[in-house]
């Protein structure tokens, strides 16, 4: 038996145990990435093997929480893929503006960078107070961080560059206050965002959305769970609503793809057809 096979068995048992005890189901996450993240967690946990970790993991919630943080944190940045945000501003917002009020679901928002980016964009386009954004994530620790809206000041240079490339109309520095090594985002960006826990593997849809944003989250899932997510997004979206995926995620080869037209070709912005 190869050493890897032993570890693969250990991981499968561990995820099975986690599902039964804590209700978090990671069995449909793609193996290669979750294995990397689990190994990273293991190296920092002080346990030698997953079998050794399992006993405490299944008995002590705090050990499980550290594992959960280790395997569910998605890194992101403000205005990641500036061309995408520019396309939202130029090609999606004009449609959104025709509604008196719009609802947005941002699934897998992690620490909130993209949610705040979207808020900046919508506010600049005159939509402040005319939308509600539900920003959800499986991991409540990152949601807490997201709702605080505090970021390392060292990131601001990169975020500012992204903001400008994304067609920002103001000065990015207007959106935060620098305090020591941190940047505190302005309260005006937070008032239309609701941060809430949601688990794409088990929880249900959000009704009547005009826009669903889920970027670089499903790349970590196995095909069956990806399908589940896409169905969830499809049933959450109104006709004429928009679905925004990561740059390497596509509706090509998907059955529900027929019901969507691609708006900005390489940027994975889709619009749900009427009827």
């Amino acid at each position: 038996m190869k050493p890897d096979e032993v570890e693969d068995v250990e991981i499968r048992l561990l995820l099975e145990g986690v599902q039964r005890i804590y209700g978090y189901d990671f069995r449909d996450y793609a193996d290669a990435s979750i294995k990397r993240r689990l190994n990273h967690w293991l190296a920092e946990s002080g346990f030698d093997t997953f079998s050794q970790a399992q006993s405490r993991l299944l008995r002590e919630r705090s050990v499980f929480e550290s594992l959960l943080r280790g395997i569910t944190v998605n890194v992101t940045e403000m205005f990641r893929d500036p061309a995408f945000f520019r396309a939202v501003r130029e090609q999606v917002v004009p449609f959104l503006k025709t509604y008196p009020f719009v609802k947005i679901w941002h699934a897998g928002c992690a620490t909130g960078e993209e949610a705040y980016s979207m808020a900046i964009l919508l506010n600049e386009e005159g939509m402040a107070g005319r939308y509600r954004m539900y920003a959800t994530d499986i991991n409540e620790t990152v949601l807490q961080k997201a709702s605080e809206g505090v970021m390392p000041i060292t990131e601001m240079q990169r975020f500012t560059r992204n903001y400008q490339k994304a067609g920002g109309r103001a000065s990015f520095a207007d959106y935060y206050t620098a305090r020591y090594d941190r940047a505190i985002l302005s309260a005006a960006l937070k008032k239309d965002i609701v941060f809430a826990p949601h688990n794409l593997a088990v929880d249900g849809e959000f009704g009547e959305m005009n826009l669903v944003l889920c970027r670089n989250v499903m790349i970590y899932f196995k095909p069956a769970l990806k399908e589940r997510c896409l169905r969830l997004f499809d049933s959450s979206l109104l006709a004429g609503g928009f679905l925004c995926l990561g740059l390497k995620e596509s509706l090509e080869r998907r059955k529900m793809g027929e019901r969507y037209e691609e708006l900005a070709a390489p940027l994975r912005i889709y619009r749900k057809r009427y009827g």
Partner: peptide
Amino acid sequence: REGFLSLSAD
């Protein structure tokens, strides 16, 4: 393992 490629933004 199933002979597919996957991507990550880690």
